[in-house]
């Protein structure tokens, strides 16, 4: 049976998420292309709402959604083209290995960027980058018996708002987070200036047809609409939205780029870890900069032992120093 194409134009924020959850639950293999009318925040299944500045979101009337698939927190708005790929987990065209799954179903997105003249490439786990800068983020997972890939082509991006909706440890951290997002994320607007969203969508659909063969045009049937409304009760319930998630120890900007925070009482350290090295450091004691410590940390390999040595030599040893070294080094 042919994979269906749902070209849905603009949808409400919640329907833009509910639609692919419903298709997957109903076992309908599909490529969905659409945009959202409203600005909202989408959490991965394991994110915690504690990572969001909920008071700010409320004050701005920005809702949030917890999707049933992976990936991190994303800010979504009308300046993005969403694509959702829904395939049965046991279908011949569905790879078993996660890495192969991403490579296969992101290839039409890469081809689309290339048609637009951008040298996009895949960066594991699931980023697409142009000249080292992220231009598309993706999440995926199993819903019912279907594997789902969900991502977006960024026409434009509100970096300031993205850094604002997150609950971050202070304004210095927030300012650096915004700077880093501008540095590490790019958009079609920035790369191309002028472009036609309609042509981008047509190119994307054409490239998915290269992969799947001709897609069968489809629209939301009463059965799909019923499933969306049924799922809405679950996904918008307080129990689902407020489900506890993993404790966020750092802010991920893009693959390989993290902003970490460590507090040792009077001393606070913000460190940017980039491809395994500390590329930017801000250390303060009671708000006063600590240039000697910053200099020692800057450029250092982000290994727990090395950072622990520096902190132990620069500050009085305590349990907090070990925890700080672990926070700054992250998983390295």
């Amino acid at each position: 049976m042919a994979v269906k194409l749902f070209d849905l134009g603009f949808m409400s924020w919640k329907d833009s998420q509910l639609v692919y959850h419903a298709l997957a639950r109903l076992g309908i293999e599909a490529v969905v292309v659409q945009r959202t009318r409203d600005c909202y925040v989408s959490l991965g299944l394991f994110n915690s709402p504690q990572e969001l500045d909920l008071a700010y979101l409320r004050s701005r009337g920005i809702p949030y959604f917890r999707r049933e698939i992976g990936g991190g927190i994303v800010l979504l708005d009308r300046e993005q083209l969403f694509y959702h790929v829904v395939v049965h987990r046991s279908a011949e065209h569905t790879p078993v290995k996660t890495d192969t799954f991403y490579r296969k179903f992101l290839s039409p997105v890469i081809a689309t960027y290339r048609e637009l003249g951008l040298k996009a490439r895949y960066k594991p786990a699931n980023d697409l980058v142009v000249d080292g800068r992220k231009i598309s983020g993706n999440g995926a997972g199993l819903i019912g018996d279907c594997k789902v890939l969900s991502g977006s082509i960024l026409f434009d991006f509100n970096h300031a708002l993205m850094s604002r909706v997150l609950r971050l440890p202070g304004e210095t951290f927030r300012a650096r987070a915004e700077e880093l997002m501008r540095e590490r994320l790019t958009t079609l607007r920035e790369q191309l200036g002028e472009f036609s969203p309609q042509e981008v969508k047509q190119a994307l659909v054409g490239n998915f047809e290269e992969l799947f063969g001709e897609l069968e045009e489809a629209s939301i049937t009463p059965e799909i609409a019923r499933e969306m409304r049924r799922l809405e009760k679950k996904y918008l319930s307080q129990e689902w939205l407020n489900m506890p998630g993993r404790a966020a120890r750092e802010l991920k900007i893009a693959e390989g780029c993290y902003l970490a925070f460590a507090s040792l009482g009077e001393v606070e350290i913000i460190a940017e870890r980039n491809e395994g090295r500390l590329r930017w450091v801000r250390a303060t004691r009671r708000g006063e900069r600590m240039p000697a410590l910053e200099e020692r940390l800057l450029g250092e390999e982000a290994s727990y032992e090395k950072i622990l040595n520096i902190l132990t030599e620069s500050l009085e040893y305590s349990q907090d120093v070990e925890e700080a070294a672990r926070a700054i080094a992250g998983g390295n």
Binding site: L45, G70, N138, G139, L142, R246
Partner: peptide
Amino acid sequence: GYLNYISVTAEELTRGEAFANIESAKFV
């Protein structure tokens, strides 16, 4: 691939039904 997170989602298990979520490489 490398697992980043596991959560057990059921106390009463039914054969053939999901009892946990796992995340690896942003795939749940």
